[in-house]
Each structure stands twice: as C-alpha cells, then as structure tokens.
C-alpha cells in the first residue's frame, strides 16, 4: 500500500504574525517557514505505519512555491520515499488544493491519504474532507489514534463530545490532530540522503485542474486588542458582576 501525505509550507508557529500596515496581508518577509505542524504529525504517522509493515511507500506532496522543496526535503529526511511538488506561486484555496490532490490520488492510487486537520496559516480545516468527498471515499478527521487492520482503519477522533471511534474502509483520508503522535527529530545523515531522493516538480498549469470559484480577501487587519474592564472592591460585587454577565 502507498500512503500519500500532504505537507503545506507555512510560516513557523513561533513567528509573531504581523498584519502589514496597508492591510494587504501579513508581513512574512524574512520569516521562518516550516512544515505545517499537523502535516508533520500526519507524516510521522505514515512513517510509523510503514515501519510497522502496513505500507510500502510514503509519498509526500506539497502545493506551493519553488521554496516548498525545503519542506519536502525535510519530509524526505524524516523518511518519506519520494516527493511531488505541484508548483504554484499563488496560494490555492482548500477546494482547489483538494482538486489538485485528487488528480494526484487518481494517478498514484494510494491506500491512505494522511494530512493535517488544518494548516496553521489559513486555519481552514477543509482540504482533507474535500478530497475525501471528491474521491468518494471515507474521511476520519481529528485523528488521535489510527489502527490499520486489513482493509479497514479504526480511527479515534478528538471531537467536542469526547473521543469518537469510527471504522473506515480503505482507501480513505485521515486528518491528524495534535495528540496523534510526536514527530521524530531529523538526523543529519538522513538530510544528506534526502537530497538524493526523487523530488518531482510539476507546474500547476500542467495538471489541468480548474480553479474553483472563491471568495476574495478584501482586507487584512489585526484583531482588536482586549480592553481593560473594571475593578470591583469585594467578593460580593465580583459574584454579582459575574451573574450579570451570565457566566455564573
């Protein structure tokens, strides 16, 4: 079985996000870029499945600029076998990304597609679900535990109500939550080996995927800062105020 893992290149989670003064976006010039942390967890899970002999090949895919090769190389250094970059300088919407991944899925015929539950830049949390719909296959989102047995994956999902377990027939799409695993550290010799692993670059235009209709971003702004409320003098006043606010 092949596992396809999607890796998005995002501004690292440690970077402080600053909206540009003209409202045209966020200032990412000179910012550290990384693999979306949820995608990194997805890749780790794929690698563990391969190491447990549940899969033969792990393919990492990214849709992004030429520089996204860095993130794919990191994925290869972690242990993926080969990489595909669908090169696009423009950001793609989740539905567009799902259509692109669907094209790759049709060509590669993986038994499992793993990706993060959401990217930490646009926070959409859509691409995995959309891919599953286009592919007509099951989805298991927010995964915190994955067990493969024959043609079925049993997945524990972190939902608001608690932990939900579902069984899905393969092939399927699984999106990872934070607690699925802790990704490994990359070793230096593996980084060198990764440079020799295949990385296939395909310009987006050549894939023949039509971009879907999308909403336009008109403006970016910083969130309003929290304002100081008021001070109370006594415990009774505090309790009254809390009751008035409907939080007690």
């Amino acid at each position: 079985m092949k596992i396809l893992v999607a890796l998005k290149r995002v501004v690292d989670y440690n970077v402080r996000i600053q909206v540009k003064p003209d409202g045209s976006g966020v200032a990412v010039e000179g910012a550290k870029m990384s693999i979306n942390p949820f995608d990194e967890i997805a890749l780790e899970e794929a690698l563990r499945l391969k190491e447990a002999d549940k899969a033969e090949e792990v393919i990492v895919v990214s849709i992004g600029p030429e520089a996204a090769q860095q993130q794919l190389r990191t994925g290869l250094a972690m242990g993926a076998d080969r990489a595909i970059l669908v090169q696009s300088d423009e950001a793609v919407s989740p539905l567009h990304a799902a259509r692109i991944l669907h094209t790759l899925v049709q060509a590669e015929q993986p038994g499992l597609v793993l990706l993060g539950k959401q990217a930490i830049d646009d926070d959409s949390n859509q691409t995995g679900q959309m891919l599953a719909a286009l592919w007509g296959r099951p989805q298991a989102t927010f995964a915190s535990k994955v067990a493969l047995e024959g043609e079925t994956a049993t997945v524990t999902r972190e939902v608001d109500a608690g932990l939900e377990t579902i069984a899905v027939d393969l092939p399927a799409v699984i999106t990872s939550d934070l607690r699925l695993n802790e990704p490994r550290f990359v070793k230096l010799p593996d980084i060198m080996k990764a440079k020799r692993k295949p990385l296939d670059i395909r310009p987006l235009e050549e894939l023949g995927v039509t971009p879907p209709p999308a909403c336009q971003i008109v403006r970016w702004r910083a969130p309003e800062p929290r304002q100081a409320g008021h001070k109370v003098e006594t415990v009774d006043e505090l309790l009254t105020a809390l009751k008035e606010r409907g939080v007690l």
Partner: peptide, 9 residues
C-alpha cells in the same frame, strides 16, 4: 493565523 489576523471576505 490562530486569531492573530482577521481577513475580510
């Protein structure tokens, strides 16, 4: 960006 920016659509 985890609430660090707001976009108008």
């Amino acid at each position: 960006y985890a609430g660090n920016a707001i976009i108008e659509l």
